[in-house]
């Protein structure tokens, strides 16, 4: 790239500023909303007149706690379990895809792709019916199983792209240098593969955390309801009060972990989302 003129450089910096505003303004808005007092919610301005923490105390110890805390627990459990299962299964599959030559390799990748674009609502009707018959409706396993349809395809794709970039020959080289095959695998391959596995886990977790369709359709009580579904069933302190403040506070709480992950692992996530994604 040639040297940029000062004017051109300024233009790109302006663009950068735009990106930051674009990304952060809606988040800032919901944060601001979460600090508004009930009487302040309709003040028609971006910022609260008096910041208050009452919405947060409401969802952690007040009326909303009964709904929010179990939902938070359910979300964490369901998403972690669905992510771990998907990543472990995908790790074996991706290893086979990256390293072995076997008939049906393309079939595995194509089905992963097909499942990734599958309209999830199509799974809801039959699962809703079946889960009610076999007692999986409104249970944690009843959510983990359909969540695999969200986490597994992306894990297979992302990890096989990562694994394809690993210089596997180094394993043999280590063996030639006298390492046992286990040592070669542990000392050479594991450190090379670990970042890919880890990044895949984060991306899969994001996707599971984002789910709303299964959460709203396959659960009904705090036994298994995850946060996004619980948000939509929040009620105000009385019938006539909109639960805007409580929803905003809960929304901020569920946003914090994913935004932190995004901030800390920015480089890896960008690589994971684009790695092998496009090769013209």
């Amino acid at each position: 790239m040639g040297a940029m003129s000062r004017k051109e450089k300024g233009l790109w910096y302006l663009g950068a500023l735009f990106i930051v505003l674009y990304a952060l303004l809606p988040v800032a808005w919901i944060v601001s909303l979460s600090f508004k007092a009930e009487s302040d919610l309709a003040n028609r301005s971006f910022l609260p007149t008096n910041a208050t923490g009452e919405n947060y105390s409401g969802i952690f110890s007040g009326d909303g706690a009964e709904l929010f805390l179990p939902a938070l627990r359910n979300s964490v459990i369901v998403c972690l379990v669905a992510t771990v299962i998907a990543v472990v299964l995908a790790m074996f599959a991706a290893y086979a895809i990256a390293r072995l030559d076997f008939p049906g390799k393309r079939l595995v990748l194509t089905s992963a792709l097909a499942v990734a674009v599958f309209p999830v609502i199509t799974m809801v009707t039959p699962l809703f019916n079946l889960w009610r018959q076999i007692g999986l409706y409104d249970t944690i396993p009843g959510l983990v199983i359909p969540y695999l349809a969200l986490t597994l395809p992306i894990s297979i794709w992302t990890m096989s792209a990562f694994f394809r970039g690993i210089p596997w020959d180094m394993e043999q080289a280590a063996q030639v240098d006298g390492a046992t095959s286990w040592q070669a695998f542990r000392k050479v391959i594991v450190p090379l593969a670990a970042p890919g596995v880890f990044t895949t886990a984060i991306i899969a977790f994001f996707i599971a955390w984002n789910d709303f369709v299964f959460g709203i359709s396959l659960t009904s009580t705090s036994r298994a309801q995850p946060v996004p579904a619980a948000l939509s069933s929040f009620t105000g302190s009385s019938y006539f009060v909109q639960p805007t403040g409580a929803i905003s506070a809960a929304a901020v709480i569920v946003t914090i972990p994913v935004v932190l992950l995004a901030l800390v692992f920015q480089r890896r996530i960008v690589a994971g989302l684009t790695n092998g994604a496009v090769k013209g």
Binding site: A23, P26, V27, W29, I247, V254, R267
Partner: peptide
């Protein structure tokens, strides 16, 4: 900085985004 910022909307769950935009355009809120 820009690459991290751009990941924020990606990481925010759709339901939260929906509420943020709904409240921003809402009649009272």
């Amino acid at each position: 900085v820009v690459r991290t910022a751009i990941l924020v909307p990606y990481a925010v769950i759709t339901v939260v985004s929906a509420y943020a935009w709904q409240y921003a355009f809402g009649l009272t809120t």
